[in-house]
Amino acid sequence: MDKPKIALYWCASCGGCEEAVVDLAEKILDVVNLVDIVFWPVAMDYKIEDVEKLPDGSITASFINGGIRLSEHEHVVKLLRRKSKLVIAYGACSAWGGVPGLANLYSREEIMRYVYHEAPTVENPEKIRPELKTKVEEKITLELPEFLPRLLPLDLVVDVDYYIPGCPPTPDVTWKAIETLLSGNLPPKGSVLGALDKSLCYECPLNDTKPEKVLIKEVKRPHEVIADPSKCLLTQGLVCLGPVTRGGCGALCIKAAMPCTGCFGPLDEVIDYGGKAISYFASIVDYTSEEEIEKALGKILDPMGVFYRYSLPASRLRGKIMLVER
């Protein structure tokens, strides 16, 4: 019997997810023994044409990381969808948009202007911007993919079968997910692979240190405090999103005394990750007057970056609404 065919592809992401695959270390060799990799631009010399030549549905699974930001991403993931039995959103960016998804708070124009003109490190006196088509010589026109109006998570562009969470997914989660896929005993479509069905608190070693009532008086930002690594970080005033985030990462950040920022995403019952995070976190701010509440919550300078760090494009509103021209 043929070995299962696997494709890996990289959309708008930092590359960490590609690293994560390599981070499987010696286990990567087991993987390579078990499967045929038919497409992996970052590591192997296959071209799009090679994929196009494959019969539809012939790839067992495509692992796609990163969100959909460019027309090229859109083109390739649609192609892979056609060629694959399973499409797997690998990592937070692919699943919910990830950090690059925070760009949805700005219009294309704002982003372009900043990146090509206003960013402090940019020196561009002629205000040159990349064009979709650039004539180099008489007969040569270079084409660039289009920068889409918004970044979208993979499942808003193609049908996604499974999700593997994390920024990036830990080797452990990746391996568990692969094991599940190889076992042939596939979970229901839409499942998150390799992680827990409970929140991080479930596996957090500091959960037992919480007092009976988890209420906080002062909200602190991580750099403002040397956190006690043996005590629940939330109770120390840090915005820890562990309670609202899927567990399975092994509480790695917590073990390094850093609060959870939510890269494993929401649990199944949650409608909007950021909305739920707001709801839970604000609830425990132990003040009753409007002024005091405002003051305590005012410590959160960048609520979107805190509560929607990995999930803005997958939120109910996807990004800033007023980008629509009026």
Partner: peptide, 13 residues
Amino acid sequence: DEKCSGCLICVGI
């Protein structure tokens, strides 16, 4: 029970 992670938030609320 299947979904509860024992995070204790509700107890304080």
